[in-house]
Amino acid sequence: MADGIKAIVFDTFGTVVDWRGSIISDLASWGVEQGLNVDWADVVDRWRDRYNPQKARVRSGELPWTNLDELHFDALKTVFDEMGLPLLDEARMMHINKVWHRLNGWPDASRGLHRLKTKFIIGPLSNANVAILVNMAKHADLPWDNVFSCELFQHYKPDPETYLGVCKLLYLEPSAVMMCAAHNYDLAAARALGLRAAFIARPNEYGPGQTTDLKAEQDWDYVADDLEDLARRLGC
């Protein structure tokens, strides 16, 4: 079944990196150093709750194109206000905002990607902007061949321009590109445009009590336990 697949692109937040666990760990340690008494788990959950609504404002045209770092910073200030926390000085607020640049991969991520890279072109197809993805790759040893940030297309997933934009940049037909994600909606949008699809469950992405994306909801081309398992299934 791998015949004809030339490139694999990956959802990144949740599929490749553990955004929630990374942010809580990072900011909890930093907060102690700064003498801040903040429930960082509450911060990150509230912050992430604004992710889709913020993107929707851009996708609907309510906002002009705005990259994810800027959307995150606006949302972070709203979260602080909602929680009754005073805004910190700009340098410290920016340090918090850039925690998204310092996310750790899931335990299988780096090894799996290194294996997949031996056979396929690999890169993130992520709503994150270029700076986030490049810095994250350095931090977590993610060996991308290219960074397919939605910033390049000025559209957020699941807009067709994102998936088809990858195909255009690589001079590949959609059937030669596979989307890998832990989110069924992402794969459904890619498949509707002719891309192949690989699902990996990340049941702890949202922490305890996650209720979404616990299993494959369609008959995807591949369903794997993790990225190393996907590499094995693809003969890497």
Rank of each mutant, 00 (worst) to 15 (best):
M1L: 09
M1P: 06
D3M: 02
A7M: 06
A7N: 07
A7I: 04
I8G: 12
V9I: 08
D11G: 15
T12D: 01
F13Y: 15
F13G: 13
F13C: 13
T15V: 05
V17D: 05
D18V: 07
W19L: 07
W19G: 14
G21N: 11
G21V: 10
I23V: 14
S25R: 13
D26M: 11
D26N: 15
A28R: 13
S29N: 12
S29G: 15
W30H: 03
G31I: 04
G31C: 07
Q34V: 02
R46S: 13
W47V: 05
R48K: 09
R48W: 01
Y51H: 10
Y51K: 03
P53D: 04
Q54K: 00
A56E: 08
A56H: 05
V58E: 00
G61D: 00
E62D: 04
P64M: 02
W65L: 02
N67E: 06
D69I: 08
D69L: 10
E70S: 04
E70F: 04
H72R: 12
F73S: 03
D74N: 12
K77D: 08
K77W: 07
T78Q: 13
M83K: 13
L85N: 11
L85E: 05
P86V: 08
D89F: 01
D89T: 00
A91F: 09
A91I: 09
A91P: 03
M94T: 15
K98W: 07
W100M: 05
H101F: 11
R102P: 14
N104Q: 05
W106M: 07
P107A: 11
P107H: 07
P107S: 10
D108L: 06
R111V: 14
R111M: 09
R111D: 12
R115N: 06
L116D: 13
L116H: 12
K117D: 10
F120I: 13
I121G: 03
I122G: 00
I122L: 06
L125H: 08
L125G: 12
N129V: 06
V130R: 06
V134R: 07
M136H: 04
A137D: 08
A137V: 08
K138E: 11
A140K: 05
N146S: 15
N146M: 11
V147Q: 03
V147Y: 14
S149W: 07
F153Q: 04
Y163F: 11
C167M: 01
L172M: 14
L172S: 12
L172E: 09
E173Y: 02
P174Y: 00
S175I: 03
V177Q: 02
A182Q: 04
H183A: 12
N184F: 13
D186N: 13
D186S: 12
A188Y: 04
A188S: 12
A189M: 05
A189K: 06
R191T: 02
A192Q: 14
A197Q: 12
A197Y: 02
F199L: 07
I200R: 04
I200M: 03
I200W: 06
A201S: 15
R202P: 15
R202H: 09
P203M: 06
N204M: 12
P208I: 03
G209S: 11
T211H: 11
T212Q: 09
T212V: 10
L214I: 10
K215L: 02
K215W: 01
Q218P: 00
Q218C: 10
W220I: 04
D221N: 06
D221I: 02
D221P: 00
V223M: 09
A224G: 00
D225L: 05
L230H: 12
A231N: 09
C236P: 09
